[in-house]
Design a protein around this nucleic acid. Structure first.
Lengths: 148, 148
DNA sequence: GTATAAAGTTAACCCTTCTTAACTAAAAAG
DNA sequence: CTTTTTAGTTAAGAAGGGTTAACTTTATAC
């Protein structure tokens, strides 16, 4: 509350605008592929954080193992993820994206961020450089915050 | 595809990080208030884009009038929004946040963006100024894109 | 080696969201 | 002034996501 007002305002506004844009692309893609929101989220998570067991999924989404198991089962049946036995602990499952699932998510990401390319083109080289500096700073600071 | 690579990358990374952060706060608040996701979204939309008729809601969320009407009805019953007759067209309704609803959303926003204040404190004055410049640029550009 | 804990699955059920269909009431068109 | 269109509501039902509870199988503790 000292005087970060214009800073706070600028960040908020940009986050609002960009969240809205990227969410729009996201829900478009989810709808186009016929995936529901939880299904899509699980796949995104598998893409960014890599393979995991079933319990990790239920923990991250704060749902029961039963619910997670059902979602996973549907995605396996759709051929989008693979569920194999963990060789070190045969109770556990090793859940990961299939090739088909991975490429689907990658198409989704590039669609979700197509507007960023358009954004790039509407700025000058100099503006782009300055933007990159500022955003790197912010990202770095946000990640430091995260770890505390 | 010329060479916006580092730009694209920086924007994507920041959007990912910030979306994740602000969504976390959002779903927290939604859960705490007992609102469902569609209910919350409708209220957010009323907050940012102002009062509107029922059809506007169904269009923006791509649901039927029936579904929109039901959501609105629940929110009216909870005392969070007001539904009055449009004096110029008595078929239409004028839907807007109540005082209670408005303050609920405002509390939500400030919770959602608390991390931005922390972010501000972890940067120097100089860094903040440069960030504000860059983000204003980006926001402006994104809005221009929007209008085309 | 038996008892207990942990990882997943399955079944039955509830709640929410959404849809279609039938309806009322007001405005616009002819 | 009658017909048609537009705005919104209501009811019934389908679909999905979530839960608890009972169960199987494997690992861990003692």
């Amino acid at each position: 509350m000292t005087k970060p007002d214009s800073f706070t305002q600028a960040v908020r506004t940009w986050v609002d605008v960009s969240t809205q844009r990227s969410m729009r692309g996201w829900s478009h893609h989810a709808k186009a592929t016929g995936l529901s929101m939880p299904q899509f989220s699980i796949m995104m998570q598998l893409y960014y954080r890599g393979a995991c067991g079933l319990s990790e999924i239920s923990e991250r989404f704060e749902i029961t193992n039963a619910a997670a198991s059902q979602h996973v089962d549907n995605l396996v049946q759709a051929g989008l993820i693979e569920r194999t036995e963990d060789p070190h602990d045969r109770r556990a499952k090793h859940i990961q994206l299939s090739a088909k699932g991975k490429s689907l998510i990658e198409r989704g990401i590039s669609e979700r961020y197509r507007w960023v390319d358009q954004l790039a083109q509407s700025l000058s080289e100099k503006e782009r450089v300055r933007t990159v500096e500022a955003l790197s700073l912010l990202t770095e600071a946000a990640r430091n915050l995260e770890q505390k």
